[in-house]
Each structure stands twice: as C-alpha cells, then as structure tokens.
C-alpha cells in the first residue's frame, strides 16, 4: 500500500509544483513507483513543469466523471519509467472535483504505486482541502518570508483538523521544506533565518532548497530539476530531502554556512 503525500503551502508561488515534480522524480529515479497528481483544476501547471503538456489526453475530472479510466488518464514520464502524472483539468469547473471521486482515485492509486504525491493548489478552498484530505504525510513548502510563514501556519492548522487522519484521531506526519533560500540575504540579516522559521512553525525540517537559476532553467525545458541537472545544488537538496522522507536520518546543511576560500575573504564585509 502506497503512501500519500500532500505538497501544500497556502501561499502561491512558493514552489509547490516545482517541489512536487522534483520530489516525485527523485523518488522515481531511486526506483520507487510514483504518481504525481495535479489538484489545481482550471490552472494546471504540473504537466508543463514535467514536460508532458502536449501529451495530456484525459484528466482527473474525466476520471471522476466516468469519462475515462484511471489507467487511460495517467501519463508516463518519457525519462523515468516509474514516474507518472495525473493532470488536472484545464477547462472544467473545480466543483467537478468531488470528495467521493477523489477518494476513489487516491484509493485506487495507493494499490499500485509506492508514493502518491498530491500537488495542492494555493489557497484553502476546495482543491486545497481535497488535496490534503487523504494525506499520510504533508510537506509544507515555505519561503523565508513573513506572508509565506503565516500562510504555512494556517495550513498546518488545517492539516491537524481537516484531514481524514485528523478526524480519526491520528496524526498527519508534517515536514517543512524551505524553498528559495538565499544564503547571502540571510547572512546580511535581510531574510528570515532557518532557525527563525523552524521556531515559529515548529515542525521538522525536510530540506532547504537554495534559490537557484537551475530551477528556472529546469522549468523552461520542462524537466524536474533532479532530472535536468542531477548535480545542481537544488537537485542535491531534493535528493537529500527524499532520503529523509524515506526515514534516513541525514543532517540538513544550511546553504552558505560552509564557506569556501572566497567566502572567507569577502563574505562578511556586507554585515
């Protein structure tokens, strides 16, 4: 029986879709069977970030409305054969995403996949609550920035009250993924530091993804960053996050704390 992960944040633009694609690909690159579901009905983008936008035939709404079988709607990645995508509908109303339909889809996918990753839309409306509903594990994507941290706090509250696990008196395993982290700004004191965010949200840290051109580049070419360049800093951070997700205890390195030769000479001058 596979595990269900929701990648969520409340705020938009923090990196949910990028992270869903990268974590899904990283797990699949390690041989796990993974499906990533786009819950952003009307504004889908996971297909674009994963480079499958020209191959979408059916979507999750077609499956829920009985117009297509689940197996027909799944798109297999062309690079990693254990990675699949279930796209959101671009044209239908989000009310077509019913609670019963989503339950049936996730129930079926859990049977044949090791990991079911739900890419949540921004906000706290229907799409977001349905994406988190069946989660065993929640990855809260947060930028070191006040509005993102506030929205993440709100989402953590929902994870503790509105999920099936919460309603059954169980806990959803929650992890913080800090994205778009800029070590130079944090060093200058212009950005919330890792410890600040951890202290405020008080959930365990899954990883820190540095702000990087590699992420933009990967989305330009339609490839999860772990596939586009597996030796880039963000890719390495996602690979490590996946190892922690699988239970390995691996210390999180804070970007910029390990100073190179030039850093030692020039790093502190701005302060």
């Amino acid at each position: 029986m596979g595990k269900v992960i929701v990648v969520t944040s409340g705020k938009g633009g923090v990196g949910k879709t990028t992270s869903s694609a990268a974590l899904g690909a990283a797990l699949a690159q390690g041989g796990e069977k993974v499906v990533v579901i786009d819950f952003d009905v009307g504004l889908r983008n996971l297909d674009l970030v994963m480079g499958a936008e020209r191959r979408v035939v059916y979507d999750i709404v077609n499956v829920i409305q009985g117009e297509a079988k689940l197996t027909q709607a799944l798109i297999r990645d062309k690079r990693v054969e254990t990675l699949y995508l279930l796209p959101a509908s671009q044209t239908r109303d989000k009310d077509n995403l019913t609670a019963e339909g989503v339950a049936a889809v996730i129930g079926a996918l859990k049977q044949s996949f090791d990991w079911v990753i739900c890419d949540s839309p921004a906000g706290i409306e229907r799409g977001a609550t349905l994406a988190m509903r069946h989660a065993d594990i929640a990855i809260v994507v947060t930028n070191p920035e006040v509005s993102s941290v506030r929205d993440s706090d709100r989402i953590i509250g929902l994870l503790d009250s509105k999920t099936l696990r919460a309603e059954n008196g169980e806990r959803v395993e929650k992890h913080l993924l800090l994205t778009r982290y800029d070590p130079a700004r944090a060093e200058r004191g212009d950005m919330l530091k890792v410890d600040d965010v951890l202290e405020i949200l008080s959930i365990p840290l899954l990883g820190i993804i540095p702000e990087s051109m590699d992420v933009l580049r990967a989305s330009n070419i339609g490839s999860p960053v772990t596939l586009a360049d597996d030796r880039s800093a963000p890719a390495i951070a996602y690979f490590e996050a996946v190892r922690r997700l699988k239970g390995e205890s691996l210390p999180v390195a804070i970007p910029g704390e390990k100073r190179g030769f030039f850093g030692k000479f020039f790093g502190r001058k701005a302060a």
Partner: peptide, 24 residues
C-alpha cells in the same frame, strides 16, 4: 564548466509556451 557548456533554456520555454497556448 557547467555554466559555459549550457545552451540557454529560454528559447525552449518560449517555443513550448507558444505551442501550448495556441492549442489552449
């Protein structure tokens, strides 16, 4: 070395978007 060996990715993004948006 990696930076220099790369081709720019923006043209790929532009082309992908043009095709996708034409269809949408």
């Amino acid at each position: 070395l990696r930076l220099f060996s790369r081709s720019p990715s923006a043209p790929a993004a532009r082309e992908r978007l043009q095709v996708l948006l034409a269809h949408e």
